[in-house]
């Protein structure tokens, strides 16, 4: 049966489907979904750099996490140093290899130098990645899941449900987030878990508003009406139809939010509210290096660079994703 090519210029002619499938094996089929997103990102150099940075940091963090949780720093001790325990022979505040300061000259065993208790800075940087990434991803995940659900329900039902949920999130939004997180941690406990939860909660309004604005327009689409007419449950409509169709901007925001969360938790650690010693974390390293800025500036520079590198990586990736997913920019 022959079918005239419809009015939609994007529509692939039906009859050609077999030939296109054969000739273009790598041809992207859907304009949505993970595979499509990746294929778009690959075309964008900036996004690609972001992917590499994030991928690299993630690998380092994975290594650190495996060593910490499974081997209890056995690998670290074998090839480097224990990042937590003070060494027996004290080489405090050594500079990086090839440099000199009042405490001595850099040695190859400590390529980036040592901290105020003689621990190897490089090892602590590597193991600090675990904390940074865990915090970044967990806080974002809490904000993402919470914000998406609240926003989707709010936008889908409208009316008083919408009013209540939106006023509630605006209340969270109105409190300065650092004050909120510190108050939260003071109430529940000063450790990393509550830092993550606290930062996650402050991220809920961001995602909530983003997804709600999308849902309000998608709610009116015919396929939602069609699903209702087919006897589909509201819950199912929200999870299967509304959320997947509103997800592109959320993905971008989530990527940026990971960087933001890392930064916030580093700030919290600096204030003494994040990871507690001796757990290696970048913010805490910065905090400890405060007293040694003049005699050993490299002590504070390294964790600062690590934070910078990671956050920039996520921001580049987020920007790249935004461009890749924006239908107005690419075709």
């Amino acid at each position: 049966m022959s079918t005239p090519h419809g009015g939609d210029p994007d529509t692939e002619p039906t009859q050609d489907s077999t030939t296109t499938a054969a000739s273009g094996a790598g041809e992207v089929k859907s304009r949505v979904g993970l595979r499509y997103t990746l294929s778009q990102v690959k075309r964008d150099t900036t996004a690609l750099i972001g992917i590499y940075i994030v991928g690299f940091i993630t690998l380092v963090a994975l290594f650190a996490a495996i060593d910490y949780y499974i081997f209890d720093y056995a690998i670290a001790e074998a090839i480097m140093y224990d990042p937590e325990r003070d060494p027996d022979e004290v080489n405090r505040l050594l500079p990086p290899v090839g440099m000199e300061n009042q405490f001595g000259s850099g040695v190859l065993e400590h390529p980036l130098g040592t901290d105020h208790r003689g621990r190897d800075i490089f090892t602590r940087l590597v193991y600090g990645t675990r904390v940074a990434m865990t915090v970044g991803f967990m806080a974002t995940a809490i904000g993402l899941v919470g914000g998406t659900l609240v926003g989707a329900v709010s936008g889908f039902y409208g009316g008083w449900i919408d009013d209540v949920l939106q006023r509630f999130t605006e209340t969270i939004y109105a409190i300065p987030f650092l004050v909120l997180v510190i108050a939260f941690m003071t109430a529940f406990g000063r450790n990393l878990t509550f830092a993550m939860i606290g930062v996650g909660i402050t991220a809920i309004p961001v995602f909530n508003r983003l997804i709600r604005s999308r849902v309000v327009s998608i709610r009116e689409e015919d396929y939602i009406e069609a699903a209702r007419a087919a006897g589909v449950k509201d819950r199912h409509i929200i999870l299967r139809h509304i959320i997947p169709n509103s997800f592109a901007p959320v993905l971008v925001q989530a990527t940026l939010q990971v960087g933001v969360s890392i930064l916030i938790v580093a700030g919290l650690s600096f204030l003494g509210f994040g990871a507690q010693p001796p757990t290696p974390s970048w913010g805490q390293m910065l905090s400890q290096s405060r007293g040694y800025m003049l005699p050993a500036p490299t002590f504070s520079i390294w964790p600062g660079l690590a934070i910078l590198f990671t956050v920039i990586g996520f921001n580049i990736l987020g920007d790249g994703l935004q461009d890749a997913l924006d239908p107005r920019i690419n075709n």
Partner: peptide
């Protein structure tokens, strides 16, 4: 209504076939 009637006993075909299918699923 949802479980017994809609879709099972009475189905509906909408006006605009372009908009009545969810674009993100096959």
């Amino acid at each position: 209504m949802r479980k017994e009637v809609r879709g099972r006993e009475i189905a509906i075909i909408f006006q605009d076939p372009m908009e009545s299918l969810n674009p993100v699923f096959t």
